[in-house]
Design a binder for these strands. Structure first.
Lengths: 254, 254
DNA sequence: GCTTGACCTTGACGCAGCGTCAACCCTGCA
DNA sequence: TGCAGGGTTGACGCTGCGTCAAGGTCAAGC
């Protein structure tokens, strides 16, 4: 007769696992000797090995129970179900790998590739990291709220970078953030630039497109609020208001 | 400002998950409004999305914490570690699939393929299922104890099946188990057969090979004990003892 | 007969990442 | 005013054991 330790070592499992199987009813509690030790025979070894074989194949213990008593047909069905589950898990893990690989490349942490590309272009203009980070955060939110439209948004933004005035605008931001001496006049130039571009956008109907895309006003407010942290933004909005424009995420004439 | 439900829905997670992240310190507890509701700003949405992105990529929450504050180099290192982990998991699952597929085929539940093949051949001789099951159990144990030698053992057993006396022996077992009337004379014939074969094995040195392979006497006793359940086996051992042989799993001259 | 070390016993907490009550309070609308 | 649909904390549940804790037992050497 075997002690629990011997049983466990024959089957290549831990003592704790054997006791666990008793607890959940996978193996019957065996006879005890005079001092209370569990005593096992060979049939326990066999049962334990079969349990392990199934468990190591990824079968949850609850189903091991059923499978050990199942006929061939039931067993075959069960295994095919389990195999489907395993395949699904593998697919999931592969998806995880893909995501991790994406994360590992660049600052794309939590942003889709399109956004990362755009940010890279903005970075190339010399815009300071602080501003890049703020932009990234905003686009993270947009991507979360409008996952289907994010690539269209980004395509639009990339097109805007072709306009020299947009580039100039970003350069001014860089100047404001890096050069403490730069002050009011820079902000004024920015406001003028924006007002001019808004005018054009209104004329070509681009401002109307916004309505179709950003239909969630609470979300727009939320995005706007992200910018308010900076005093420069506050001042810029004042100047834009003087020029007849309100809104930030979504621009409207007032 | 957002409530917890709004925050959760922006990021596509459950409220419970958000509260969990507070609890484990992944997200700071935000301000409360007059009635005790948590109030969030946009930066919480961003942080939550980044947490989810990492978590869904299979990063344990404990590491998400570190990664969010890590620099690019640390981050790259960490992701490669995580990717290795994911690959390992995938390999494991694939191994599980292999095992499940093996289990699904035939009565190979927990026996290696070699054993299953051997049992199939024995079954073909007309040996009743009860005996097959007993044999299978014994080989399960042998395979567990001597995984490296099991295929050699089985090759040996298959070779033995070529001997007409072995076949005759199995047929006699079948007769004993199915025909209640069959009695003493069958067992005697079996004992004679075995004694003859043991004699030959001793002459050709095959019995010495056993010593090299089965070196664990406790294990041998255990295997012997599996057979003792049947009165026929007990009687057979008596007769073999009269003919000068002892042991069952491991045969010795006495 | 005593000590020592390896092995056995039960009981209970811990783990990851939340899901799911329970029991109660707050808000907005008809 | 009532009711639906938010929010709050607190606590247990799930999987498959690992890991103390606080002992009792066995075999062996002195």
């Amino acid at each position: 007769m075997l002690t629990i330790g011997q049983l466990a070592s024959y089957a290549g499992v831990t003592i704790r696992a054997v006791r666990h199987y008793h607890q959940v009813g996978l193996m019957p509690e065996p006879e005890r000797d005079v001092s209370g030790y569990r005593t096992y025979g060979a049939e326990a070894v066999v049962r334990l090995i079969r349990i392990r074989t199934l468990a190591e194949a990824g079968v949850p213990l609850a189903r091991v129970q059923e499978l050990l008593n199942a006929d061939a047909t039931t067993f075959a069905e069960a295994t095919s179900v389990i195999d489907r589950g395993l395949r699904a898990q593998i697919r999931e893990l592969q998806e995880h790998r893909r995501r991790i690989a994406q994360l590992a490349s660049g600052d794309s942490l939590a942003v889709p590739a399109e956004v990362a590309d755009y940010l890279e272009q903005v970075r190339a203009l010399g815009v300071p990291e602080m501003m890049i980070a703020a932009e990234r955060d905003a686009w993270i939110m947009v991507a979360a709220r409008y996952p289907d439209q994010i690539s269209a948004f980004m395509a639009d933004k990339v097109r805007q970078l072709e306009d020299p005035r947009t580039v100039r605008f970003y350069r001014l931001i860089a100047q404001l953030l890096t050069d403490d001496a730069a002050g009011e006049q820079v902000v004024v130039e920015m406001a003028d630039l924006l007002a001019e571009m808004f005018e054009e956008a209104a004329a070509t109907g681009q401002l109307d497109d916004q309505d179709l895309n950003m239909d969630d006003s609470a979300f727009v407010q939320l995005l706007d609020s992200m910018a308010e942290g900076h005093p420069m933004v506050v001042r810029l909005r004042e100047l834009l208001a003087e020029r007849g424009w309100a809104g930030w995420t979504k621009v409207v004439r007032v």
